Computed example of a mutant assay.
Amino acid sequence: MSLRIAFLASKADVAQQALAELETRYGHVSPEQADVIVALGGDGFMLRTLHSMVDHPAPVYGMNCGTVGFLMNEYRAEGLTERLQDAVQEIINPLSMTAMDRQGGVHKELAINEVSLLRAGPQAARLQVSVDGRIRMPELVCDGALVATPAGSTAYNYSAHGPILPIGADVLALTAIAAFRPRRWRGALLPSNAMVRFDVLEPEKRPVMADADSISVADIDWVEIRTELNIRHKILFDPGHGLEERLISEQFT
């Protein structure tokens, strides 16, 4: 029985060219009818695809038509059906972000990589950090802070000198961005079921924005972040090139 494949592509020329070639070779069905969804683009497009396909049961197999492609497989038009049949599945639980802005509006978003808080003015942010209802840091003065999943630990988290987390590790990375006080504080490792809360101190003087996988909320008062265990993103990788191997390899480059 042949696989029913739904192809989705970013607007980049190279991705659109790949889309036309693959649809000609393998046909195309809607995501609702698909056994597998193939995403053509870079990591940003892969994240958008996972978010938009969260209610579809089919797993997502990415092929890199972008730059970094950490979440993607190598692009090749030949032998796609066999690659999909042999692919290894990884399960990723996203983060749930609840943020309240200073006007009292509540915003809820999901993040596969990380939820980050960033200063939105010339002065450093002042944040109070709580874990599971207990204040752990009364004042963190910094350019920002983030909470990253294992899948997202090699993205913004790694650039901010946070740790790389193995896939399957039941931990989250809480990482400071350019911490000023406490000086050089880089963050902490937390259980994956922890609830992290940031309260913005002096928000009128030191405004802060929140970002969940590039979905931004301006002028926030507080943010709560936790793992959303009820949502399971299914991602396919070629054998020997899954997230576990990529995370290990990244630490030796």
Rank of each mutant, 00 (worst) to 15 (best):
A87D: 01
G240E: 00
A125K: 07
H107W: 13
I91Q: 12
I135Q: 12
G69F: 09
S2F: 13
Y156G: 01
D143C: 04
P166Y: 14
S159W: 00
T227S: 14
M53N: 07
D211W: 09
V217H: 06
H51T: 10
G79I: 13
S153V: 02
A77H: 08
N113C: 09
R83P: 07
S116I: 07
L236M: 08
R4Y: 12
L40G: 07
Y75S: 00
L140V: 05
T81Q: 15
V129P: 01
L146R: 07
A210V: 04
A178N: 14
V217I: 15
L80Q: 03
F7R: 03
G152C: 08
L117D: 03
G66C: 13
D55P: 08
G168Y: 06
L3P: 10
V60K: 08
D199S: 10
D170W: 00
A176Q: 07
V54Y: 01
M209I: 04
A9K: 03
A176N: 05
S2G: 15
I177M: 02
E74L: 15
A178G: 07
E202F: 12
G240R: 02
R126D: 12
P57Y: 00
G44S: 06
D213V: 06
A151D: 02
V29Y: 13
T154M: 03
A188F: 11
I248Y: 11
G69L: 11
L22A: 07
N93V: 05
L174G: 05
F198I: 10
M97A: 13
C142S: 12
W185T: 03
R119Y: 02
A124G: 14
Y75Q: 00
I225H: 06
G152R: 10
L140A: 09
R232V: 06
A99D: 05
L165Q: 11
R25Q: 13
V208C: 03
Q33T: 00
F7T: 06
S2E: 15
T81M: 14
L50Q: 01
N193K: 14
S10L: 02
N64K: 08
V200T: 02
A12W: 07
L117G: 05
M53W: 07
A6P: 01
I92V: 15
R119H: 03
R206L: 07
